[in-house]
Structures are given as C-alpha cells and as structure tokens.
C-alpha cells in the first residue's frame, strides 16, 4: 500500500542515510533549537540604573517666579517639581529615588529610595505634593542643610541631588563657615542650581497661605548679626560692645531680592566633591540624573530565547519555502 508520499511499515532507516536528506536536517535542527529554547537560556548583562536621594529646597526664595515655562512665569519650586517628575518617568526601571526636603538647617528624608517603576505612582504623587508650607522653619542655611544631608545619607549608597537657589537667609557671617572636609568625596551627586541670574522679588504669604505681595527691604535682615562680628571692633563703625556689636551703620542690601547664587553653589560643590549643574529648562534634570558617572551597574539576565527560536524558524522556512518540492 505504498503511495506518493508514504511510509514504510518497516523499521526506521539508518540515521546516516537520513542525515543526507536536507529536509530531515532542517527538521532536526529546528527541533534541537526549540529544545534549547525550552531551557530558557539567558545572558548575564549589566545595565546602568540610578539611585538618587533628591533633596529639594522649600524655603521662601524658591517661590520666586523667575522661570518661564510655556510663556507662563513659574516659580522655582514648581519648575523643580515638574523637572523631577519628568526625570522620574525617564529613569530606567530598577533605579531608585528617595525624596527629602531642605529648609532651616536640616535635610529631612520623606522616604528612603523607592524603585521607580513599581513605586512610580506613589513617588510621583509625593513629588507633586511638595509645598513650601511643609517648611518647619524660616531660615535658609544652605551649607548647613547640605552638611546635614551628606551626614545623614552617607550610608544609603545613593547619589545626593541637592536642589537649591543658593540664597542663604539670613546672610552668613563669614566667621562661621561650615567645613565639609570630612565628607568631601564620600557621596557622589549633584548640586542643582534653580532660579534666574537677575535678582527678583520674593513672594510673601500671610498666615493663611495667601499671597500678599513681595518682601520689601525692611522685611529681611541684610547682614548677619549672629555670634561675633566678622571684623575686629576697631574696624567697625559705631561699635558698642553691648548695644551695637556689629556697628551702628544701617545696612540696606538686596537680600529681599533673590537670584541664583551660582558662584556660591560652585564653591559648595567644590568643597563637597559634588558636581554643580544649573537647571535652565525642566527637561535638563533627567539628563543630569542619567549621567554615566552616577550609574550603578545592575546585572540582569537578558532573555536570549529569540536566538534559538529564530534559528528554528529559519530552518523551517528553508524546509518549506526554499527546498524544491522534488528533491533528488
């Protein structure tokens, strides 16, 4: 009962004869490849991910509206928040982001770094809710806040991203300067400068949180009156040990206006071993956060089943599509 494409009832022919049949070779190759696929071969690859603790300055000067986003003037804080949210979207899965706030002289961690894909919604909402009203004090001691951040977060193995406009308030007394020696180079990271370079008025809010104009010259101290005066008494005009240790001169400056203090932040970056970057457009932050120097290489098992599966498919295409119908 043999017919056109038939079978022999007898035992299988020797394998050596089969090996000469290209159809058989194709099928065997395809079967072998699929077999390999079923064992789920993977390749150890390392890909860059980024762990950051971002500390955002929420002091009053961050309310200055000197950014223009889509031709609307936007406050520094709002710009920083939208920059952070778009950066969060662009960090590769496996990266982690922790969020902290700076005001007074402290950096306060809201949460430890959270994985950015699984925790996206939670972290995104948390960034959205950052508000200057969360502040627990009115001072803006940037060097102290940075020192606090370096001190508290040194063991997290994350990079520190400190976002500020550099406006110390009240002004620093040069006699009392924060020394960063112990922390220099311990943490990698960025100091991100937010704000415009020309002085702009700082919005003022009443106790209900409603805007009531801007700070005026008389609202803020224009020099430090903390501790000992920076100069020896003989050089201070109108010095009186008890009544006027800093002199009797009325000092009016521009502390009621605020601009990005780039030189100061560069100096801080230099002292702490961080990198200074200015935030000019919200989109720039994600690039800075994905800079290769901040990457941690994470080992991932890349799926390479496509390789044997593709080979099997190719073998079948040869079998069915390319080999002539009649083979001799």
């Amino acid at each position: 009962m043999d017919h056109g494409a038939g079978f022999s009832a007898g035992p299988a022919l020797k394998l050596s004869t089969r090996a000469r049949d290209p159809r058989f070779v194709c099928l065997a190759l395809a079967l072998l490849s699929v077999g390999v696929t079923l064992f789920h071969p993977t390749l150890k690859l390392s890909r860059p991910v980024f762990d950051h603790i971002v500390v955002v300055d929420i002091t009053r000067s961050m309310n200055v509206a000197d950014y223009r986003v889509e031709s609307r003037s936007t406050s520094r804080l709002e710009t920083v928040k939208s920059a952070l949210r778009s950066a969060l979207r662009e960090l590769p899965c496996g990266s982690r982001l922790g969020l902290g706030l700076f005001t007074e002289r402290r950096s306060f961690l809201l949460f430890e770094p959270i994985e950015v894909c699984r925790g996206f919604e939670a972290v995104d909402t948390a960034i959205e809710h950052i508000d200057w009203r969360m502040a627990w004090g009115a001072d803006s001691r940037i060097a102290d806040g940075l020192y606090d951040a370096l001190n508290q977060f040194q063991n997290y193995g994350s990079n520190l991203v400190f976002v500020t406009d550099g406006q110390e308030a009240p002004p620093l007394n040069p006699r009392y300067k924060r020394e960063f020696g112990a922390f220099k180079g311990k943490l990698r990271g960025l100091i991100v400068g937010a704000g415009g370079l020309s002085p702009a008025p700082i919005p003022k809010f009443d106790e209900r949180g409603e805007a009531v104009g801007f700070y005026s010259e008389d609202d803020v101290p224009h020099r430090s009156s903390f501790g000992l005066p920076p100069k020896p008494p003989s050089e201070i005009e109108g010095y009186h040990e008890r009544n006027a240790p800093f002199g009797s001169e009325r000092v009016i400056g521009t502390e009621h206006l605020s601009s990005l203090k780039e030189d100061y932040l560069r100096q801080l970056a230099d002292e702490t071993g961080l990198v200074y970057r200015r935030l000019e457009k919200p989109e720039e932050l994600s690039l800075a956060l994905k800079s290769p120097e901040f990457a941690r290489l994470e080992a991932v098992a890349a799926d390479i089943r496509w390789l044997p599966a593709g080979l099997a498919l190719a073998a079948l295409v040869v079998l069915y599509g390319i080999l002539p119908f009649r083979l001799r």
Partner: peptide, 25 residues
C-alpha cells in the same frame, strides 16, 4: 511644625516600608 505629605494611599508595600524606615533618621 508643618504638615509633611509623605506617600499617598498605595498598594506598594515596599514604598510604604521605605517611608516608615525613614523614621530612623
């Protein structure tokens, strides 16, 4: 002194633990 929004209501237990752990600081 001020209210601090930390994390919204979420199913992500890891995230909540990350926020609770920050109590150590």
């Amino acid at each position: 002194t001020g209210p601090l929004f930390v994390l919204p209501l979420t199913d992500d237990r890891e995230a909540v633990l990350a926020a609770v752990r920050a109590l150590r600081l």
